[in-house]
């Protein structure tokens, strides 16, 4: 593969009503263009399918070149497309070096669970790496479940995080669990 510095990088997102063939259609367009898919993640929420991809192409290459093939493919599939050009070096982003924690929050559904928990984290510069929420339970007793992973700054310990979330646990009457999932090098 061409060295990193000789490639253009883009963040591509594609969202729309789910149907078979979305990933195949989008990846075919990228393949035809000569784009490489680096990291990607896809998820289905309700009936909506979403793809986020980091793609690259040897220079010279522009966002217009990318859209030329990708836009018709997205439209054919009824998907909404967004493309952002990455600045040089952005594709090499490394998260902070602190502990990685998995935080589980669940309880009776109510407005503001995501907002209250994530703003408590944001105020301490705790960076969310991954977040999933799901409304479960019955219509009479809806239960909200949130599972997220966040990297702590080096001066914040899992114990501090525990204290930080303890007051929210009482106030929102939700269960909050914290588990350190920092990878072990073997």
């Amino acid at each position: 593969m061409t060295p990193r510095c000789e490639r253009s990088y883009y963040a591509v997102s594609v969202v729309g009503a789910d149907r078979p063939g979305i990933v195949a259609g989008i990846s075919e367009a990228l393949y035809r263009l000569g784009c490489n898919i680096a990291d990607s993640s896809c998820a289905m929420l309700a009936g909506e399918f979403a793809m986020i991809l980091i793609v690259s192409h040897p220079k010279p290459f522009t966002k217009a070149n990318l859209l030329e093939e990708l836009k018709p493919a997205s439209e054919r599939l009824g998907m909404t497309l967004a493309v952002r050009s990455l600045q040089t070096g952005e594709e090499q982003h490394r998260p902070p070096a602190g502990e990685l924690c998995q935080i589980t929050v669940y309880g009776a559904d109510q407005p503001g669970i995501v907002y209250r928990v994530t703003s408590a984290l944001a105020a301490r510069q705790i960076n969310i790496m991954d977040l999933h929420t799901k409304l479960v339970g019955s219509e009479e007793e809806p239960v909200y479940v949130m599972l997220l992973e966040a990297t702590l700054p080096e001066d914040i310990t899992p114990g501090h995080l525990e204290q930080l979330l303890a007051s929210l646990r009482a106030e929102l009457k939700v269960e909050i669990g914290i588990r350190v999932v920092t990878p072990v090098e073997l």
Partner: peptide, 15 residues
């Protein structure tokens, strides 16, 4: 379950 990384598979970790 533990999240593992390996020197023979850099840049990736998994449960």
């Amino acid at each position: 379950v533990m999240r593992e990384g390996c020197m023979s598979v850099p840049d990736y970790t998994g449960d």
